[in-house]
Design a protein around this nucleic acid. Structure first.
Lengths: 221, 221
DNA sequence: CCTACCGATCGGTAGG
DNA sequence: CCTACCGATCGGTAGG
């Protein structure tokens, strides 16, 4: 009965820690995520948890990576799987996947990046802050590229500034998270879709088809 | 040399605690605001700090009130002092005061309400969460009223849904806080003003007059 | 307003 | 992966 387990067992434990850590961090933030709480929830000792990461900061960075993996799976890849053409069609699919990601409440505390950005944006620069800012920037750049393609193809109405369009799209998603989490406002996803539609020069939605664009079925995880 | 001071002294101490507490809470959040840290910063003992409030929760609620007072002074009253007529003119002044409030960095951690909303929106209901949600709602209601007046007066372009307009305005302010705090993006205030202008059916700004509407000089505090 | 405490919890280490 | 610790800090209390 040695406490030493196989490499595969260790990896499984690590995965369980990160999965639970991501749930907790979405609620309590990355500082509020404590090793003792994780250990209790997983019926482990604190040193058993910490052994996988060494320090709390390394654990926090691993949780950020876990959150990125979820976002990539549920937004980036799901949008890509729709096979929409570059430019406005792809941008619409990406926006729909983004709204859907929040609407489906994949994490108990809502959007991990919104929570953690607000937690770290005033901190001195550090690895965690940098990681969050960098991951945010990757998604913004992807949206900007599609917007630029849409502009070049004459698919957008009047606003020729891709940066401005992405800024405003982001704001509508932040408003969604805000209304959805603070007031449990069930109308918020529809409001965000309506704002995005207007911003991208689309006509108002038909009653029977509220989505911005059709998406493949979501992964059930 | 009794440690007991006058009532006026006690009130001054209380004010100092709340002022510092608001600064700290804007950075660290209302949970991250600790009594020990406050005591150190103010060269007091922990029990000296706690004596003014009894419990941490009471302290947190007092800090929320302090934040409301700042917002009322710098946004609500400053906008009212401009003397704009109800409807679109007043709505523009209120939006300009709102953007200016963030742009001027009145607190070291940016918008207190954004930070605290994101911190408490997933928590079980409690007095702090309720207070934050209620204060948020008061401002939203004020904006909605002016929007409804503007709609009734035919001052808005096409969108007849006041709730939707307020939702989108809020989103642009959230985007401002996001870009301003996380990326130190100096272009963010102009982007928000531009988005608001478009949303409210105004022409694009002239180069020399970027504000949404003229405001009186800010209070220096 | 202070000193002097309390039990609980924090991140982390030693040693196995 | 565990037990058994460490010093520091948390919110809060007793008593003056």
């Amino acid at each position: 009965m040695s406490p030493r387990r196989s490499v595969a067992d260790a990896r499984r434990t690590r995965t369980a820690i990160l999965r639970r850590g991501l749930d907790l961090a979405s609620i309590e933030g990355l500082e509020g995520l404590t090793i003792g709480r994780l250990a209790t929830d997983l019926s482990m000792s604190k040193s058993g948890v910490l052994g996988h990461f060494g320090t709390k900061e390394t654990l926090q960075l691993a949780v950020v990576d876990e959150a990125v993996a979820l976002f990539v799976r549920e937004v980036v890849r799901r949008a890509a799987a729709a096979g929409a053409e570059p430019g406005l069609p792809r941008l619409l699919v990406q926006c729909e996947a983004w709204v859907s990601y929040l609407e489906r409440d994949l994490l108990p505390g809502g959007c991990f990046f919104t929570a953690v950005t607000s937690e770290f944006d005033d901190r001195e620069s550090g690895p965690v802050r940098s990681a969050v800012a960098a991951k945010n920037a990757v998604w913004q750049r992807e949206l900007r590229q599609q917007t630029e393609l849409a502009i070049a193809a004459g698919q957008l109405p009047d606003d020729p500034d891709a940066e401005q369009v992405v800024f405003e799209l982001t704001g509508q998603v932040l408003a969604l998270n805000h209304a959805w989490r603070l007031y449990r406002d069930a109308a918020a996803p529809a409001r965000t879709r309506r704002a995005m539609r207007r911003l991208l020069g689309l006509p108002a939605a038909l009653d029977g088809q509220p989505e911005l664009a059709p998406l493949p079925e979501p992964d059930d995880h």
